[in-house]
Design a protein around this nucleic acid. Structure first.
Lengths: 240, 240
DNA sequence: CGCCCTATTGATCACGGTCAAGAGTCGTGG
DNA sequence: CCACGACTCTTGACCGTGATCAATAGGGCG
């Protein structure tokens, strides 16, 4: 508990730091200044170090969590202890919409994997806004739709792509979306390989082998977490 | 095209058949009488025989589809032709919310697998209602949330359960939700086994073997599509 | 330097897929 | 009524992807 120091944002000076932050937050892009202001009222900001669990599956949801910085992994537990990573959330992402809206427990566990900063909007404040602010309702609806699409794509990937194809797809998705040829893009894995592997529904051993395989095939060059994409085109249509 | 006979619902008498229908539709449970009436204005009803494709992945979405009767399967295509079933939708279900809302192409293909009746709400009518009717917005938001939960559960099942466990879970989910012991529930598979198998990410061969296995173990009794659950408790915690 | 964490590599195994053949089941028409 | 074909389901034999277990490197840091 000690490390979870929360600061009411409104104790600060003239322009609360996180009112500015909320205004820039992707989820609230369509909100007007005064709507932001009302949302910011119950906001609380805090930081959590790597390894900290933000919430466990099954707990009740008390707030909407906005990720200011750092990185969080969402995962579920296997029968015997080990976990599968479902999603990685970085700065600009949010957690807990559905649990909050549906008034049901979290269905995943959220753990900080890179020291992170959060802004939290209290449950009641959010529900209150939802009840009275149509714009806010629309923001949330859009976000949930986006997430449903994302989840559906993940399910598809898992159903009809093999490991190598999933890795290739992941690497490409990490590359900045440049329309250019990009025959020489270098990407950096967002976290350690074992987590990426789990996210792709692979063991870290298998992930390692796959990286080797596509490196041998001359498609990429791996050095630690830095991966240089040598042949985006062939990577995109793998294996041939 | 011949079989896709559409009838404008409003050409009917005093109380349009589908105004009644819309009022009973789960998705619109929270709407008031006059809101229903407005929605019903652009409604069109029609029927499609088994085998008909309602829409293909990639097509633009022109309407919200409500399933009155029959059954529809949503699927995606593998690299080489064969398909994976993602979801089965029966009477009371709806299709196309996300594609309509996000103004993006369908991401799945919908095929009728049991002669079905539909009511269709035109794209513009729905968007219009969304823009002006907060209650409707809330209905849709709820539905999308439910679906996101469903999809997440599916992904989990696929990630951390083996074939046998998925089958057991599916059989249990088909049983009516009676709190009782239910040591002798009989269920009927909603469609042919090969489709169920695909839905569970199995080949129909493997599905067949699994059914045999749990039958041999004394957990169920299979006769065609009728399956009698002999030991719900052991089935629930399989394999032991 | 030694320790802990992360990553790689090897050997083996099993779950589930593929291919092929046969058994039921049902509807149609001679 | 039976024959035929189409379709669904079952069973068998074999194989491949990817998991498991185990040992060994790297790499950062106190």
């Amino acid at each position: 508990m000690e490390a979870r120091r929360k600061n009411s944002v409104n104790t600060r000076g003239a322009l609360p730091a996180s009112e500015q932050f909320l205004g820039d937050f992707p989820l609230f892009a369509d909100l007007k200044r005064n709507e932001i202001k009302r949302l910011a009222r119950g906001a609380v900001s805090y930081e959590l170090p790597r390894g900290r669990v933000l919430f466990h599956r099954g707990e009740a949801c008390a707030a909407l969590h906005l990720v200011v910085s750092g990185q969080v992994k969402l995962s579920v537990q296997t029968a015997r202890g080990d976990e599968k990573v479902i999603e990685l959330v970085g700065a600009g992402g949010s957690l807990g919409e559905v649990a909050l809206l549906m008034k049901q427990p979290y269905i995943m566990t959220a753990e900080v994997i890179a020291d992170a900063g959060f802004v939290e909007l209290g449950r009641d404040a959010v529900l209150e806004q939802l009840a009275h602010n149509v714009n806010f309702l629309r923001c949330i609806l859009g976000e949930v739709c986006r997430r449903l699409n994302q989840r559906t794509r993940d399910l598809e990937n898992c159903l009809l792509l093999n490991g190598t194809q999933r890795v290739a797809g992941f690497l490409l998705s990490q590359a900045p979306a440049n329309g250019s040829t990009g025959t020489l893009t270098t990407i950096t894995l967002p976290t350690k390989k074992s987590i990426i592997a789990s996210r792709l529904n692979l063991t870290h051993e298998h992930f390692s082998r796959i990286l080797r395989e596509i490196q041998t095939a001359g498609l990429v060059e791996v050095r630690g977490r830095q991966i240089r994409l040598l042949d985006v085109v062939r990577l995109r249509s793998f294996p041939e």
